[in-house]
Structures are given as structure tokens and as C-alpha cells.
Design a protein around this nucleic acid. Sequence first.
DNA 1: AATTATCTCAACCGCACTCGA
DNA 2: CTCGAGTGCGGTTGAGATAAT
Length: 369
Amino acid sequence: MGRSRCCEKEGLKKGPWTPEDDQKLLAYIEEHGHGSWRALPARAGLQRCGKSCRLRWTNYLRPDIKRGKFSLQEEKTIIQLHALLGNRWSAIATHLPKRTDNEIKNYWNTHLKKRLTKMGIDPMTHKPKTDALGTGIGDSKDAANLRHMAQWENARLEAEARLVRESKLLVSNPSIQQQVMISSAPAQNITQSALPPCLDVLKAWQLQGLWSKSTGAGIFPVAGDHDLESPTFMVNAFPIQSTVALTENQVAAALDFAANSSVTCGVRIIKEACQMPEELKERLDNTMSSQEMTYTTESAWFADSFRAMGENTPPLNIVEAELIVGQRQDYGNGDKTCSGNIEENNNHYWNSILNLVNNPSSSTGSPLF
DNA sequence: AATTATCTCAACCGCACTCGA
DNA sequence: CTCGAGTGCGGTTGAGATAAT
């Protein structure tokens, strides 16, 4: 049997959209919303299939679409995310405001892929082509680190999808709504009102370099290090909203670093699976004001995350927290913020990932841009 | 100026998934 | 549980634009 193709009906137009078609579609959606795409063309007076209408709307006519040349930052983000997520264009697009998955896919295929290939980098593996034969030589700590990051990002994406599903329940369940509001309230005074789409793990990784310079500690456990398989703490990188793994010692190192530098750094505990060492808890309490600090013993989230990552049992001593890192700024009224030198950190992170791509043993800048 | 090669990107195709009957 | 409609997603195509000869 088989399903008939949606555009096979006689009389339906294919190919480029005319300004008149666009106008009809725009006018209809502005007045009625799109509703059922299949039913839309007839109602809007268009000789097109619903699928074609949907595509035209989502990729071209939607008002919140940014068109034109990709910025350097956007290029960096695409390559970074492609290294983590592969050809999951819709997932990548969620991190690039106002860009469509189709546009990103096209830009990757026509520009970025070629640029990487030209540099002798396999655009699919993001490894130098000399390593593509599977010698195992390129399997550096950094590469393993990258894979570990990808695991986390995948787990986060799954969690996000789960949240979207669960959010539907919230609409009809006031008691759950209240619960969520209470648990998220403490973050409001330190997070930006409109956070950028999260690069979560990437951003946290970029901070690793920042920390490493002063402390020798890294946020991410290093491959081969025992920490890799048993992260002790889950820490959120401000202003991002996801989690990375930190050991107890790394949390302590972060606090040391914060105390001895101009960078504002703190850890806001959201969830704790079991008791933290008293000394560390005290230091955390001193770092952040009490109203920014909450403790719970809820650990279900972590169990879910680790199941998603293929872990059989969640490690002990897990906490969920936010790591607050930023450049200390004084605006003359004594108001200090941790809005941070994000751009500088971005550059640092970008150099790191490009160094990994170009030359795993190198620590110099990138020739890509 | 004409022809050919290459590039770009909007649009299409078909598979996979969700959801409701 | 099965089936079909609706939709989302990633891969691919091809017309038009641009560059090279």
C-alpha cells in the first residue's frame, strides 16, 4: 500500500514561492495561526501542500528569523556544537537564536565543512585526518574529555525533552507549579533575566581553562583520572543552566581561586544527594549569601541523568549546584556583579576546542579564523 | 561578451516518531 | 495492539547567482 506523498495531489504548486503566495500564508497565519498544516493551504487559498507551507513558514516567513551572514561567534558555536552533537541540526539550532536548522545545515555544508576539510580536519569526527584511520593515537585525554562532554550534553538534551513533556502537565496542575516556583526562586537574584540558550557543558568547559590557570584543577574530570567515572559534585556554570561534574577537591579549588583573584566565583547548591563535608559546606555558605543557598536531599534528577548516560548506579555524594563565575565589576555604587567577561571566556574556550581539533598536544591559538 | 564551472540556499523527499481513534 | 494522520528532522536536489576562463 504505502502512503501517498503530500504533494502528489494534482494542481498543487511546487518550487519557489512567489510574493503572492508568501502574502497569503503570512496573512492567514497572522489572523488564524497555522493550526493544522494539512488544512491550512485550502483555507488560506494556496495551491500548495501543507508541508510546503510549514517549511516556508518555519524557514523563511517566521518573524523571529535572523537572516544574513553568520557572525564569527555563530560560526564558532556551530562548529563547537557539531563536534558534540553531530548532524543534529535542530538541537544545534536551539543554541543559535533566530537561526533555523535548515540555514545552519546549509551553512555547515557550504562553508564550515569545507573550511575544516581544507585544514585537514575530518568534519565528521573533528579530528585531524591522519588520526582518522583508527590508530588510537589521537585518543588523547582531551578527546576523551570531549566524548565525556558529549555524554553530558546528550543527557541534558534528553532531560530538556523530558521537561518539555512535563511542562504540559504543569499547566493543569497548580500544586506542581507551586513546587517549581519555590525551587527556582533563589536563582532569580543572581541569574540574568533573559539567559541565552545554553551551551551548558561547553561553557563550563571553557571555565576549566580559567580555573586551571590558577589552581591546576579542572572542572571536568580528565580521562584516565579516576574522577571520570565517579563525579562527586554536579555544578552549574553561570549564567548557564545545566550541570557538569566536579569533585569535592575541585569545588574547594574553585573557592580558593575565587578568594585569590578578581574573578567572582561561587557555588550555589541546589540539590545534594547525601551529606557534604562540613568544612566545604561552610566555605560555600561563606561564599554566597544565605538567600542564594538552598539544600535539598532530592536525588531523583541525578539518577535519571545517569541512567540516560548509561550509568548503572549514580555515584555517591552528588549535589546539583550552580557555579557562579564572572569578572568582578564595580559600578561606582558598590554594586558588584558577576556578569562576567563572557566574551573573553568564550575566546579561551574556543581556542581550547580548536587546539583539540587542530593539534591535541598544542596550546596555541587557532588558524581557523 | 559568451560560455562554463562552481557556489549557494530554498525547497523537496522520505523516513521516523507521536498521538489519537 | 494496529493503523493512519500529522509533524519533525536530516539528507538531497536543482535553479539561480556568481566567478573563472
